[in-house]
Design a protein around this nucleic acid. Structure first.
Lengths: 338, 338
DNA sequence: CTGTTAGCGCCTTCAG
DNA sequence: CTGAAGGCGCTAACAG
């Protein structure tokens, strides 16, 4: 309200008029083409911009140039802490590169997903980073925007993938348990479907334990993450079956780690003392609960950051073949596996 | 690659040409003005759209109409779980209303904030929801977009506010502790500055304990959240000072609850048995840690949802005076205060 | 070095 | 009911 005339947003024309120059020059000024602008012109324009508190309209620019500096982030479930962790890395990178993040949540609804994919076109988003739930998805088939997938491969959408090196990670976890003298291990995973990471983690565990004759390796695949009973009975069966042996449970991810912790509490079992516990992902509370839970920490920030960089390269055409970038995880030993 | 000719995005003109109609009619079709379109026309257009896989450009639309269906979400610290929780509510609401979320993180950098505020104009964002860190901020002074603040008032920016009813909440917490027979309580808060919620929570606690002559109420204000030592010594001093009395610690928010839990572990103190513990906010791990931590849960989803609604109303001009909406919290009793 | 002109894709008068 | 013309704010030739 302090400015002179109208309280409408100033346009490039207003600036040109006030500065007494053509709008082309203003445009050039905005785009940093100072080499082709006389000093007097520069100062005049700068002044006018200042006075009018002028902000060039990205909308108009996008319309003209065709690129929007917008990228989309699609979560299948915005509730998933992993996604949020990765988002922090993405956010940091996008900030550096001057990109803006549109955040979407498909909320596991296939219709919603379809709608979103359309929106992305409408808004001329330049690229997409997605943490997909389903790896098969016909909505993706028609999809043609530059895309990077987080954590897992998507069958119906060829794209770059960045995530954890699940071979290394699962090997580290299993070997650690083996070396620590555990004799019976229960690997707890959510439904595997064809979600690569869960598959890999499980497979490596199976193989490694199979190779150790003195060690028992069992796997249980939870039907639904809400299924307390299944988990409780699986654990108590496991315990009674291997009475007298050193036992440990492995959680395939942070959500499962939480579920198991809760189950153990219900069963009055104490991790560290009564049974070993180790989990993929390193939730913030892993160090606070009981004696602390040993975890395999993913470099989530790094993953997000790299995801953006890959996307950036792809947007700008430096696209070779689709790449997979998998980072090693870090074993963080706490007393749950003492 | 399945479509006919060019692989460029189809425009309204392409549709018009293919359908053999004027683009005005297509535009009308897009905007649902079916009352003014003959049936034959409708089908022709529908067909052409289908064939071309046409998506109207939001960019162009925004340019013309002036509104973008974009709203911005600004976090001072994207790392803050509270923000993320609230975001879920905002996301849900924005989805229902057909708005898209731009997510920003000022990352506590004042320069960054300035930059973002400018961007908001460039992108013609229709409104802003902000979880501000500082309540004084000169960047806000010039700011004129419809805005809703989460959790706290912002001095330099008159706007709607939605958050917790801190009077009710703090009263509930303190009264509960009093009723449970605790005789000495330590209220731990991060630096209060003029952040309303912390202020209120602390104040209510002070008043209520002051009114109870048999009860001791102390407050400690942490300088920095990283300051372990300060916390450790404060707690142990508190404990030794009130030896023999039933003691409890109150954490002003989830972050502090975590810090205190860690401190207690370092001090070999067990909440529930050695000392009571209660915290504002209800982090997911509150039920897993030790015997479980009693919390005062905020309706974070609701807060986010409402924030969007208020913003929506303001964007659409139903703006009366600025409103404050404060929701009551829910006390969730666990064994840390037994 | 500088300004004129012509659109980007869409919507909105205003005439048929 | 339908279409032609103009313009949103900006940029990119193309001339001076």
């Amino acid at each position: 309200m302090k400015t002179t005339a109208s309280n409408k947003k100033a346009t490039i024309n207003d600036v040109a008029t006030l500065a007494n120059v053509g709008k082309t020059s203003v445009s050039r000024y905005l785009n940093g083409e100072f080499a082709v602008l006389s000093e007097s012109m520069q100062t005049k324009i700068a002044h006018a911009i200042e006075v009018l508190n002028y902000q060039p309209s990205q909308i108009a620019r996008s319309m003209k140039r065709g690129h929007t500096k917008l990228i989309a982030l699609i979560f299948a479930d915005i509730t998933n802490p992993y996604s949020i962790d990765v988002m922090q890395g993405i956010e940091a990178a996008s900030r550096e590169y001057g990109y803006i993040l549109l955040v979407f949540n498909t909320n596991n609804e296939i219709e919603r997903e379809k709608h979103i994919l359309q929106l992305l076109f409408s808004y001329q988003v330049e690229g997409v980073i997605i943490h997909a739930l389903r790896t098969h998805d016909r909505n993706f088939k028609q999809f043609s925007l530059p895309t990077v997938s987080i954590d897992r491969q998507i069958h119906d959408l060829p794209c770059d993938v960045v995530g954890l090196d699940n071979d290394q990670a699962s090997t580290a976890v299993t070997r650690y348990l083996l070396d620590s003298g555990f004799e019976a291990m229960l690997f707890v995973t959510e439904t595997i479907d064809d979600i690569q990471p869960r598959q890999k983690r499980t497979m490596v565990f199976k193989q490694m334990t199979a190779e150790h004759p003195h060690c028992i390796g069992e796997v249980i695949e939870l039907n639904s993450s809400k299924n307390q009973q299944q988990l409780d009975s699986a654990i108590s069966k496991f315990c009674s079956k291997h009475r007298g042996m050193r036992k440990a449970i492995i959680a395939v991810n942070g959500a499962v780690t939480l579920d198991i912790s809760l189950a153990l509490k219900r069963l009055k079992l104490e991790w560290g003392r009564d049974i070993g516990l180790i989990g993929f992902d390193d939730p913030i509370w892993a160090s606070v609960v009981g004696v602390g839970i040993t975890t395999l920490k993913q470099p989530t920030f790094q993953i997000g950051y790299t995801a953006f960089q890959l996307l950036y390269e792809r947007i700008h055409g430096n696209s070779t073949d689709f790449r997979n970038v998998f980072y090693p995880g870090e074993l963080i030993v706490r007393e749950s596996t003492e």
